[in-house]
Amino acid sequence: MALRLKPLNQQTIVVTGASSGIGLATAQMAAQRGARVLLVARDEAGLEQATRDIVAQGGEAMYVVADVGRREDLQLVADTAIEQFGGFDTWVNNAGVSIWGKLEDVRDRDHQRLFETNFWGVVYGSTIAAAHLRGKGGAIINLGSMASDRALPLQGMYSASKHAVKGFTDSLRMELEEEGTPISVTLIKPAGIGTPFTAHAKNYTDREPKLPPPVYRPEDVAEAILHAAEHPRRDLFVGSASKMMSSISNHTPRLLDWIGRRVLVKAQLREEQVRQQQQGTLYEPGGGGRVHGDHPGQTVRPSLYTRAVLHPKSTGAVALAAVAALAWLAAGQGRLRRV
């Protein structure tokens, strides 16, 4: 069977981690473009509000409260999509958590819990989705990270989980392709994204956590995800910083080791002391309903690199127009000087 992905307005899309951040932005954008959306997270209040907002704006959406670290919860999600929508066409494994702290300071159980969400949630979601999509085709889209290619200090186990997600995703893709299964498998690798990510992280340090700049918009990741839902892609970087870090890591890894120890530790901590030990959402849901986070002193900016990758023709036309305009202005200034 040939691999063909439906237009968004003909799709049902499952999105995990959909009560806030990238997942919420993706669900909202997908519904605006005509897709039916099934939102998945642990935070029922956040899911309920997000679903109500989508429906109020004319979209079609439902939600299921689930912990992605439990296979039976995600099987319920798939069964609900089949029962209510007749199935699904794209499954987005987005749910994720993080921990700020040195590896030796973090409790083993916290490390394990992070892997249950970040890695096993992707494994369970991907294999359940593949079982449904095998006979009809569709897309599995997994959220990796810049940390899939390059580890970060103070987020060591998060980095390890994203490396694991990359390895799993690449293996799954090859196995499905070897079978001739019409399923697209895409890994999305964002740089730092301006979501409530730091507020949701468990913090072992004595300082408030922050994302190292540059920080990009959640909507840029949503755009990349929905592009992959319609166009088969192996992987997509979001933010030129992610692409650059991956490329440098392949060629001069020791340079990034030096940057990591000299720059990235301080770059991930705010000046102010932590007010109370931050437990985050590692074990309990909370803080849903917000796409954007609080990143004082940092500019959350659109990724022109990602826009160029997703829309090369239109971006090229804009670039050519800008060059033509500059040439025209330069010529005009020359004429003025001669007069």
Rank of each mutant, 00 (worst) to 15 (best):
A41W: 06
A41Y: 06
A41G: 10
R42P: 07
R42Q: 14
D43Y: 13
D43E: 10
D43F: 12
E44T: 14
E44C: 14
E44Q: 15
E44S: 14
A45T: 09
A45L: 10
A45Q: 13
G46F: 10
G46D: 04
G46W: 07
L47F: 06
E48Y: 07
E48S: 15
E48L: 10
A50G: 07
A50R: 05
A50L: 06
A50V: 05
A50K: 08
A50S: 14
T51P: 01
T51W: 04
R52H: 03
R52G: 01
R52F: 00
R52T: 02
D53Y: 06
D53T: 13
I54C: 03
I54H: 03
I54F: 03
V55H: 02
A56H: 03
Q57W: 02
Q57N: 13
Q57E: 09
Q57I: 01
Q57K: 14
G58S: 05
G58I: 01
G58R: 05
G58T: 00
E60M: 13
E60I: 12
E60L: 14
A61Y: 01
M62A: 13
Y63D: 04
Y63R: 10
V64F: 08
V64S: 08
V64Y: 05
V64E: 07
A66Y: 05
A66H: 05
A66D: 03
A66L: 08
D67F: 10
V68C: 12
V68A: 12
V68P: 07
V68K: 12
G69P: 07
G69Q: 10
G69L: 11
R70D: 08
R70V: 14
R70C: 09
R70A: 12
R70Y: 09
R70S: 08
R70Q: 14
R71W: 00
E72M: 11
E72H: 14
E72C: 11
E72A: 15
D73P: 00
L74T: 00
L74N: 00
Q75F: 05
Q75Y: 04
Q75K: 11
Q75W: 03
Q75C: 06
Q75S: 09
Q75H: 07
L76E: 08
L76Y: 07
L76M: 11
V77T: 03
V77Q: 05
V77S: 04
A78I: 07
A78C: 11
D79Q: 13
D79T: 09
D79S: 14
D79F: 06
T80N: 03
T80E: 01
T80H: 03
T80Q: 05
A81Y: 00
A81L: 00
E83D: 04
E83P: 00
E83C: 03
E83A: 13
Q84W: 00
Q84N: 03
F85M: 05
F85C: 01
F85V: 01
F85Q: 02
F85A: 08
G86K: 07
G86R: 09
G87V: 02
F88E: 03
D89V: 11
D89E: 11
D89S: 13
